[in-house]
Write a protein that binds this DNA or RNA. Structure first.
Lengths: 249, 249
DNA sequence: AATATTTTTGCAAGTTTTTGCTGTTTTTGT
DNA sequence: ACAAAAACAGCAAAAACTTGCAAAAATATT
């Protein structure tokens, strides 16, 4: 194996998981810990990652200050993503919407897992393509400049011809009474089509977005099969959702 | 076996697998390791691949962070992109394939220019979305893991319903006799559909890729309306293309 | 056609790079 | 402060690289 391959693998792992242990690298690369150490040292001096005691981190993740709202939110999203990934099984065909939470899900999918994923999100598609065993099918259409998300008749039409195992929707506002709401009309159309095309609907939401209502409605709570938050399923914040026939994770 | 054949084989392997070991090459080519070493050294000095300890990699092998791609090729590509952008006019509807040259085109499009662009390339789509006045429509389909490019029936089908002003094809191998060739069969299908859907076909090629032939053929030279290279249009290297009814830029 | 010249190829000796191992020093968590 | 884990430094074996050289092949010359 070439040194360059090793270093690429290390950088991929760091970018994927934000942090990585030298021991794990040594094992999965089948080289001594010293070699890994030397590689990481080199990559660090090239400013491609940050070496820390026992491992390495990507530059975005090293500052773990809980005061910083963004980082805090990100770790919530990662914990949601971890729960979501555990819902996936080999051979499934799924739909994924866009948003940062779904991005984290895409990154955290195990390398071994065999999946077929349809998505209208450029970012999610890009992240999924890192996984050799995931077949990625992009739902083409007019792209929104800000969300990098395909919308319009083409997408809805393509979705109407699908019947997949599960659809994973991120970045929505959720309320027990009003259901799932958004502020972009075109996105709504696509998400509704996604829900129709899937046997099960999984909603990912950080607790901050619970009990808020936006302009347009995607669906009622009755259409939701699984609700994933960063909270413990028994958390009182989730009480208002318990009357519905859904799984809390 | 001729030296040219050997070097072509080496380049093909590098393009295909992104990395290659000198030992493997020596064995599959039935020449001594020294000969392979010299070949690779030569190709490296011509900036066609990157020699590393024990083997060679393609440029952009480590491309996840910054552009590790080679600077010589890049400046050629930028000059091609500049010429290409000057062919565009307000209100046009165009098709763009993938590849790094088309990426440069996408980046160089003036902010004021109003365009509608269809593309099956994730990277090009992403770059185009930076431009407020460009409407981007992604041609959805199964994505290739390495090229981040959509292929398959869906793409070809969508293209069959279009009639656009111009299609811009990058990253091909061009030869006066054999026309435009590639090494990926699925990509060929899409590019052929793109040519059929457009009134004019514009080919972008760095001079290194002139007069080379790959396994599969996209189209004859007769299908090409404009050929853009980094060379001066009067350069003798382009002589073999003059008999055809095309514009050299 | 025969000979001279240049290029290419393979080989061998010496050098550099890489890698894993040793023991020692530094850092970390309790 | 102390034990455990990690980092460091030096060393030796293996792999890869360099250089010079001579045989072989290709090309040019007479």
């Amino acid at each position: 194996m070439l040194k360059e391959e090793r270093q690429k693998y290390i950088l991929d792992q760091v970018h994927l998981h934000h942090r990585v242990l030298l021991n794990d690298l040594s094992e999965s690369l089948n080289v001594s810990i010293d070699t890994v150490r030397r590689d990481v040292k080199e990559l660090d001096s090239e400013k491609k990652l940050k070496k820390v005691h026992g491992g390495a981190t990507s530059f975005g993740f090293m500052t773990f200050t809980k005061d910083d709202g963004n980082i805090y939110l990100k770790s919530k999203k990662i914990s949601i993503a971890e729960k979501t990934v555990s819902l996936l099984t080999d051979g499934q065909v799924i739909l994924m919407s866009g948003g940062t939470t779904n991005m984290e899900v895409a990154k955290l999918i195990p390398k071994k897992l065999v999946l077929t994923v349809f998505t209208p999100s450029l970012h999610v598609a890009m992240a999924l393509l890192d996984h050799e065993n995931v077949e990625v099918i992009f739902l083409g259409g007019k792209l929104l400049h800000d969300a990098k998300f395909a919308v319009g008749g083409t997408v809805v039409n393509a979705l109407s011809q699908l019947r997949v195992d599960m659809c994973i929707l991120g970045t929505g506002y959720l309320d027990a009474e009003f259901g799932l709401t958004e502020f972009d009309w075109e996105v709504i159309q696509v998400k509704q089509a996604m829900i129709r095309a899937a046997k099960k609907t999984v909603i990912l939401t950080v607790s901050d977005k619970l009990h808020s209502v936006q302009k347009y409605k995607t669906c009622d709570m009755t259409a939701v099969h699984t609700l994933v938050t960063e909270l413990d399923p028994s958390d009182p914040l989730l009480d208002s959702f318990r009357p519905f026939d859904l799984v809390l994770v």
